[in-house]
Amino acid sequence: MITLENVGVRYGTGPEILRDVSFRLAKGEMAFLTGPSGAGKTTLLRLLYLALRPTRGLIRLFGEDVTAVSRARLPELRRRIGVVFQDFRLLDHLTTFENVALPLHVAGVRADEYRDNILELLEWVGLGDHVNAYPRVLSGGERQRAAIARAIVSKPHLLLADEPTGNVDPQLARRLLRLFVELNRLGTTVIIATHDASLIAATPGARVMTLHQGRLSITPAGEAA
């Protein structure tokens, strides 16, 4: 599913943010990406959701070399990836329902084909009463759940989440984690970037990838603290 070999990223002429990062993640695996602030977690996620090309090395996603893929091919690959951003990135002028419907709308799915699924999904993430609400009136946790719903609505093969529990209380964090675990059980490969050690400890089946000063070390599943 995901293969990185000796990947390096450098912004302009600055130092390398990521150095010789290599790992493989099979379909249906779950992994945590952790490490101190500035270690390169977000940069690694940006590489994986195709918002950035590496300075060197090889990245294969879904069996395709994405370092050489053309710009026109990117949308198709991105439709197979769901992303939950730390700052949600919901569109303020669209309702919760419309924000969640966005990936399906841009893929050309008709509203009557997705309406019921989205209502069900919003119910599932606990936003059934906020379908027509705009992001501005939602709490941090509600926005986070709307962002998660948007990321999973198109049943992505790969789900990337950048500090998905950073803005929520511990109780909601555990609830969101259960949501990710359930998605993973349904076959989605999940990578969660987090500082939250309790989250990692609560998921013994997941691999833990630790970034430190741009270098990656991997703890196999079940060996995390």
Partner: peptide
């Protein structure tokens, strides 16, 4: 995703039309 669906937004809330 097997949750029971109910009318979103409570009684009388408009059903979203999509984008």
């Amino acid at each position: 995703m097997t949750a029971q669906t109910k009318k979103p937004g409570g009684w009388g809330a408009p059903v979203p039309k999509g984008l």
